[in-house]
Simulated assay, not measured.
Amino acid sequence: MQAARNAILEREVNAALVPATPRHVLAVATANGSAATNATVADATAVARADGMQLAVQNVRPLPPNDPQGLSQVFFVIALLAPSLVFANLLVTRFGKVMHPFGQLLAIAAYAVLVAAVATALADPAIGALTGAPWGLFGIGTLLAFAATATAAAAARWAGGLGYLLVFLLFIPVGVASSGTTLGPHMIAPWYADLGKALPAGSALPAIQNTVYFDGNAITTPLLILSAWALAGAVALALVAVFHPPTPGSRRQHPGRPAAGSGPAADART
């Protein structure tokens, strides 16, 4: 039984059947996702009844009482993604549009630290939903916020409103749904689950889940994916300083054409 427990907590398996007398034991972890766990228990129970076996279920890592469905991690990610995408749009089109791209990157970094600190403080000590690993939660939140903001800002600088809209749709509606965290990655289409794993939400959710509930096991790959998004967004935004794409909403000044309010007519009016 201890071997099965360790395999689940180390994220090697999601459930394990341990033969025993007088009944077999199915080891599960609802922290892995209540929907996926319930489906596993239902299937194993049906098989056991068909074979005339008795089956006991042991939950080796339950969810906290104030989050019985394990939705806090989803809310945590959305609470970081949504304002980050809004901040990216405002930075590029409003209060930061005259800033140098490197200045925008510094603003994004400061914002990411601030919003992750607020989200962690609300999720851990204030609400008590995601407890036990505040620094890990803060680090993942900072990386997620930076990756989302930098990518959205770069998309807006290079492709305008259309680029920003595509990033928004990809990161929130598609990214959260394809992450499979609420239903389990094995309960959605394989290609859709693979897409989710490659997006920020689909990498941040398992990283948070494994950090809070499974002692930080199996978080290397999700963190590498998040880091890749952050690096790609930062590089794309920094390249604006080299190629100078127009800020969304601005107008290019055509060579040889006088600016509005200049020229002989303007001089005559003055």
Rank of each mutant, 00 (worst) to 15 (best):
Q2Y: 04
Q2A: 12
A4R: 04
N6A: 14
I8A: 11
A15R: 05
A15I: 09
A16T: 01
L17V: 05
A20L: 07
P22A: 07
T30F: 09
G33Q: 05
S34H: 12
A35Y: 11
A36E: 05
A50R: 13
G52N: 05
G52C: 03
M53I: 10
L55C: 05
N59G: 03
V60L: 05
N66M: 07
F75E: 08
I78L: 15
L90P: 00
L90M: 08
V98Y: 07
M99E: 15
G103S: 07
V113P: 00
A117T: 08
A121C: 09
L122Q: 06
D124F: 06
A126K: 11
A126I: 13
A133Q: 06
G136H: 07
L137R: 01
G139C: 01
A148K: 03
A148G: 08
A150P: 04
A152V: 04
A152L: 02
A156I: 00
L170N: 03
V176L: 11
V176Q: 01
S178K: 03
S178T: 12
T181N: 06
T182G: 05
H186P: 01
H186Y: 12
M187W: 04
I188P: 05
I188T: 01
Y192W: 13
D194I: 13
A198Y: 04
A198S: 12
S203V: 10
A204C: 07
V212L: 03
Y213S: 08
T220Q: 11
L224I: 15
S227C: 11
A228E: 09
L231P: 00
G233I: 09
V235L: 15
A236Q: 09
L239S: 09
V242S: 13
R251V: 14
Q253S: 14
G261I: 11
P264L: 13
A265F: 13
